[in-house]
Every structure is written in structure tokens, then in C-alpha cells.
Design a protein around this nucleic acid. Sequence first.
DNA 1: CTGAAAGCGCTAACAT
DNA 2: ATGTTAGCGCTTTCAG
Lengths: 341, 341
Amino acid sequence: MTGIEDVAALAGVSKATVSRALSGRGYVSAETRSRVEAAASSLGYVVSSSASSLVTGRTNNVGVIIPMINQWFFASILEGVERALLDRGYDLMLYNVTKTEAERTKVFEYFLVRKRVDAVIAVTLEITPEETSQLLALGKPIAGIGGPLEGIPTLSIDDVEAARLATEHLILLGHREIMHVGGDVHEQMDFHVHSKRLRGFLEALQSAGLPADEHSYVATRFDIPGGYTVGKQILGDPRRRPTAIFAAADEVAIGVIIAARELGISVPDDLSVIGIDNHPLGAMFGLTSLEQRPDLQGEQAVEWVIRQLEQPGWAPPPVHSVVPARLVIRSSTARPRPRAS
Amino acid sequence: MTGIEDVAALAGVSKATVSRALSGRGYVSAETRSRVEAAASSLGYVVSSSASSLVTGRTNNVGVIIPMINQWFFASILEGVERALLDRGYDLMLYNVTKTEAERTKVFEYFLVRKRVDAVIAVTLEITPEETSQLLALGKPIAGIGGPLEGIPTLSIDDVEAARLATEHLILLGHREIMHVGGDVHEQMDFHVHSKRLRGFLEALQSAGLPADEHSYVATRFDIPGGYTVGKQILGDPRRRPTAIFAAADEVAIGVIIAARELGISVPDDLSVIGIDNHPLGAMFGLTSLEQRPDLQGEQAVEWVIRQLEQPGWAPPPVHSVVPARLVIRSSTARPRPRAS
DNA sequence: CTGAAAGCGCTAACAT
DNA sequence: ATGTTAGCGCTTTCAG
């Protein structure tokens, strides 16, 4: 394996100069630099990251802890993080920590045990206070996405606001019988997403002077089958059927629409459905949705940690800060035509 | 940061002994070992991976190159790979290489440039011969999943056989008008999956003495919307409608079923649909499916590369070897009742 | 079974 | 602007 010494010899300079020329740190004359670069590439030289990490203390790796990969939201975040990281010249170490205790400890051990990452990005991680302090004890930049992590700067959209916007959109279209299909407020891994979206919904109704009771809201699993099941129930009885539904997530909304279509209910003609996320499948179902860009959140988190790495002293926005996603009503997709009023 | 020297001092032994005790390599008396371990954990000592990599030449990292994350098949592989790697004590470096040229070269540069992985797993990577040789030139264990990579041991299911099994299942149930909805044979990133599944389908028909013409097969995009679009076309005309459909992937099958239900066609009563993959959403649509376990392929690939790492001399099965997935007909879900004979 | 010592390949002062 | 030199923290002969 060709090392820095070979390059130095070929270029007729010292190892130090090669290091400076290739890393861009320190003064090197343009002429020398190009000679070194030529030598390096002709030899196919590449720095040994272990050697350079050993002396600099920097690994150029960022660890990502994520609870699942096989769901649109999480996969999107991961894609965004990966893209941003690669772009900035960092590598991504993936830790898919599931709920099982054994795996959790293993991951935390690895992180704490191996000093191989410069920073950590934690995605909707549900962790105990002690796990948090273990993370913090690393003394490395950390950013969270999607769930407030006590003591850790976290990114997420403004759920209350998003829900309110969605609901107001329906109200503006003339709907008065609007129902909310959301997640179970008592669910694990909630991070108050469900309760916040419910709150935004209720606030919007209230502002518009519309009544809200326990029939205005129903909880289900946060995926397509969840929405489907509930959709069949809600829409089965024509007398109780709302004219519009605000689903807390596109996946739920899609389930509802599938159910509706099977029942011969046309969306959006007979029933308006709006969701949050802008899930790619939405287009197929004529779904109106507020755009949440998990990939952008991922990119943002990367910015946060890298900025801390590269300009010491800089600190991300305070704990639990909430960065609103771009909320876009794709009105072209939504043409609700309420029967009521 | 506490180093090996501190541990040695506290345990009253030399650095060398600490190293042996903690790494498990070399002779250390049981008594000494436990003293060292106690010292290490009381100090919260962890080895510096850069230092140890520098001297051993091993990083304990495996690189994974994958073209996309946000799709069931790919995410499943990634989950399987991650699980297996974590289990064996390796870390996973993720490289999501999309089609854009810039990103590709960047990834390949990183791999070639940084010597930070011990092995590489390439998922359905469509690479040029020179990229292949770049990979091979790394001189590190490599395994591919899903697409035959010239010169690289690759895992995939037996597509022809899977398609044949699925089709035979329908034939056995009495169907004679069976249609295949598959991917476009001329598609990029094909790896012959589409043509192989088509071939298996045709062979099954032929063996059963059933006719097959150009109307027996239709190509579409390999996802839910793709299946939906085609479903509407195929099933719209009651006279041409087949009694059964073999979809080349569950996602396509699900699209077809959604279309069928909207048309008032009951699955599986009026129409049998079978797919390949055992996609989790299948259950919601009463879909019969052959089980493909991408996560298991991921785990297998990990075994291959790690085995090469840990027992030099061992070699994985020859190039392009095909490992059949577990093919499970979930007959409980499928109750086709053909109108024809 | 344990210790001493020689690096692994590079970077960062410090000189020049 | 470039060269010299002293390690970074660990593993691994080689002695004992």
C-alpha cells in the first residue's frame, strides 16, 4: 500500500509538505502543490483515515441512530442525512436501534465504546434520561430529529400549526362536518405528535365556531391499514359520515381513501381528505396534503452538527426548538365539494 | 480521555497485557484478565479504533452501497444487513448511490480513497465494468445482492423458479386465463429480474399446456401506482378480464387489487391475484404471495464477507450464484374461485 | 504468562 | 514556503 512517504519521494518534497498540499492546511506553493497532486494520483495514493484520525482526533464520521428504516418517514430522513453528509465529505455510520433491550445497550456501548464518530444524529429516539446523559457525555455535537430529546437540540415540524392549517383549509372550503383520524395519544414513541395534531385540529374547529365532541376524533395505527380499518368504520354509516377528514398522516389518509373508494364514495367529490407529509403515494389517490420534508430535516440536522464541528463555539438553536417544515397545500389535487352548506 | 496506559497503571500490569486481556488475543491469566477488566470498566476505558486500526489494518467497518432506501425491498435488505453486522460487532457505513454521475464518482472515490472499510456489500448496483474493477481492486471481500455483478459473488432469489411456482399455484387452483403483470424488460436496473419472472410464468403455462400470447403479459412500473394503472386497464373490460393475475411483485399486485376493488371486483372471489415478496401491506388486501426475504439476503451477504474476513482462504460460492429465498404460499390468504372451469 | 520496545501512517509544532 | 521531529494510542514481535 503506497503511503505518504512514497508520494513525498516521487514529488521530491517532505512528508509534511505532501500532507499540507493534500489536506489544504498550511502554506504550499501552487507549483509544489500540483507536483504533489500529480505524484499522489499517479501512485494512486490515498490517506489512511486511521492514521490521520489518530493524530487529529477527527474521524469524519457521523453516527445516525434510527429506530426503523422501512417506513417512508424514516427512510426519507435517512436519505436526506446521507445526501448532506456525503456532500460535506463525511461518512455515515448507521445504527438501527430497535426496541429490544439487548440491541439498545449494544448500540449505546458501541457509541460510547469506540470513539469512532465525530457527531451523532438521533432520529425519533425514545431514550431514557440516562441514555441521554450517556450521549451527552460523549462531548460531541448531537442533533435530534422528530422527537424532543431532553437536553438535545431537536428538529421537528410544528405539529399544532400544521394540523391547524390542514383543518382550516377544509373549513375554508365550506366543510362543517370534519373528522380527525389520528394516532393514539397514549402510544409509545409518541413524542406528543398525536396530541399536538389533535390539538391543532380542535383549535381550528374552535376558532371557526364549529362544534367538536368525542365523535370528531378517532385514533388508529399510524399506517395504511390503520387508516383503512377506521375508514371502513367511519364511512360505513352514511348518516354519520363526515364531509371531510383530516388524517394525521398521509399513510392513514391513504388507507381512508382506499376504504372510501371501496364503499363507492368518491374522493374528493363526496369526501374531502387531507393529510400531512406529502407521501409519494398520495398522488395516486388524489390526496391533498401538507408537505413535510423529512429529508430536509435530515439535511438540517447535518448542518447543525457539522457547523459545530467546523466552527467551534457555534451552537444550534436551543433545546426543543421547532423548525417548521414547508407547509404546502397542493390545492390542485384537492377539490372538495361538500354536501353540507 | 483515558487510554490504555491508565488502565495498565491501575491494574498494575503493562500496556501489552491490557491489550491482550481486552482483545482476547494472546495468553493472559484469568486472574490478570479480570483485574484488567475491572480497571478498564472502572475508568470507563474504551479502545481508540483509529489507533487499533492503524496497527492492525482492520477497521471493523463494512461499507454498504445501495441505490435507494425508500422502498420496501431495499429498506428490508438494509435492515437485515445492519442487524447482522451489529450482531457480529461490525459497524455499517452507508453509501446511498443514486444515478447522478457526480454522486457515483464521489462514492467510488470515497471507497477507493479512504481505506476505511474491511469489506463491501453492493445492493442491486448497476455498475460499469471499470467501476467493478475499481471495487475488486480494493482487494477486500465483496458481496452483491439482487443483481449479478460481473466477477462478484452475488445473492438473489431464483426468479424463474419463483415465477413458475406462483403461476403453477394459480393453475392448480383451476385457472386457465392467467395474466402476468411485470416490469418492463427493457428497463434500466433490470438485472433480468423482469425477463426471468416472465420466463418462469411462460414456462409454467407451457408445461400445463395453456396458451400464451402477447395478451398474457403486460409491463408496468414496479410499484403500487404501476399496478393500479394497469389494473384499471386490464380489468375494465369484463370480456377480456382474466380470472387470475400473477404480478411480478407484491407492490404491483397491491395496485392491481386496489383497482379491482374500485371496479367492484372481489379479490379473491372474482379474481385471484398472486405476487412475489410478501410485502407487509399484502395482508390488508388478502394477497397471496411468495415470500422473498430481502433481510435474509442481507444477513447472508454479511455472513459471506465476514467469513472471508475472519477465516482467510474461505471463498463464497462462485460468481452469480443464486440462493433461493424461502418460497411460502400463504394459502390461507388465497381462496381463488375461478369462474372458468 | 508478562514486559519492553518498535513501529503502524500520518499531522502539527517548531525550525529554517 | 518547506523540512525535521515528536508523537497520536495501540498491537505485536521478541525476550524473559
